[in-house]
Nucleic acid binder design. Structure first.
Lengths: 235, 235
DNA sequence: AGAGGTCCAACGTCCTACGTCCTATGTCCT
DNA sequence: AGGACATAGGACGTAGGACGTTGGACCTCT
């Protein structure tokens, strides 16, 4: 029964009452919230309590506070979740758990299953874009920074055809978390031959072969796993 | 560049410094953190600031505060994420977006892909348990509360064989979010014939037929979608 | 009309005091 | 001796006030 202790539902909790205020007034992301002082008056608590509640809501993206300007309804992106997952994974890794591997294989399991579905459904524009991205990877295969962004866009674009913005966000969140953890634990790797694996995925998807696409994705993650387990040993 | 504004990495931010403290001292979940007063001294800031930082970290599960006892390293479960996702979905739904449908189809897309993989890998114990759960669903098909818990355990048990605790947690988080949103937006439904769908999934999995299992999962979600779109219209 | 500076509402930090809760310790009873 | 109960202390929770800092809005001057 930590419902009250944590997010504090619509019960007496300050956070819950602010959340309820957003719901009741149907405020969209970006809409202004009452000022801290107004909330103090409305909720009948001290400014300290109001600020702590806002800070907690800000931490999960429900509220956005802009210094000297006001408080607003937040974007509620998955970024706070990514940060927490990153932290948790880094900490777990330091404590002997295989949390990095778990995160990687979470991505593998999900994406390998999804790629089957996306086969044959990718519009021509996206295919063109994917082909272009593979080309970019092949070209500047030496820039770790640029490669990351390209790799990210490839994965995002690949699953765009599933036509589910939330799904895309979630996949991107997992990508981001893995990326950040890798950056914290391992040395920046040489992109090496990664572009080939992406090309294989793209070819299989274009060919309309679901099983081959799934295999290609798994091979891609096999390669990442190899690199990661190699460098993470010196964690 | 909202890294500093949000979680505040190891930069000057108080949150970041507390997170760094956990990492540096390699504290496991449940381990005690310095008291607020000690943190005040260590970090050289006021108690207010310390408390706000702790509140933010608590909101994402990194820290757990127990009234009158102390602050501890949190469990870092996905529960805060579930709550945020729930809130976001409810709010989005009220604002005309199809966020509930998105959440449902996120689960469908992911689980339909995963069930193919789990085919033929479920140990006998789990299969027995799954069969039992289907039986339970069939029996007390009238208790909405009990049915929810059984349904949840079915899905958790089904994907247990993938042997990835993080994946299980994520799937459970999605289940939980959808469940909470449904509770907030729709009337409690009559479990009706859901048990049959679960039985179909189980039979396909036992038969080792990946495609049939995927279809069974999709049919299951089709049914949920039908119920949801029917009752959510009166939101 | 545009560039610049000023004003001020609103958030950020700090300090102090007091209330509340939980645990641990110790006592008393059985 | 062992357990139930009362107590004391530490630690978090809330409150109120004061001052610093920021950034958008408005006004002025050119």
């Amino acid at each position: 029964m930590n419902r009250a202790a944590d997010g504090a539902g619509p019960s007496g909790g300050i956070q819950g009452r602010i959340k309820r205020l957003i719901i009741d007034e149907n405020l969209e992301p970006g809409a202004p919230l009452p000022t801290e002082v107004e909330l103090v008056q409305r909720l009948g608590v001290s400014r300290n309590s109001v600020r702590e509640a806002l800070k907690a809501l800000q931490a999960v993206g429900i509220v956005e506070v802009r210094h000297g300007f006001g408080t607003f309804v937040g974007s509620m992106s998955l970024e706070p979740f990514v940060e927490a997952l990153t932290f948790r994974t880094v900490l777990g890794q330091r404590q002997g758990r295989q949390s990095l591997l778990e995160l990687l294989e979470l991505r593998e399991a999900v994406e390998a299953g999804l790629v089957r579905r996306v086969v044959g459904r990718i519009p021509e524009d996206d295919l063109t874009r994917l082909r272009h991205l593979v080309g970019v990877m092949r070209q500047d295969a030496e820039s770790p920074e640029g490669h990351a962004r390209t790799d990210r866009e490839f994965h995002v674009t690949l699953y765009q055809a599933l036509d589910n913005p939330l799904l895309s966000e979630v996949l991107d969140a997992f990508w981001d978390a893995l990326h950040q953890v890798s950056g914290d634990l391992a040395q920046p790797h040489r992109p090496s031959e990664t572009w080939r694996e992406h090309q294989e995925i793209l070819k299989a998807v274009r060919a309309g072969d679901a099983s081959r696409a799934e295999d290609a994705v798994r091979r891609h993650f096999d390669d990442i796993r190899a690199r990661l387990t190699r460098t993470a040993a010196a964690g």
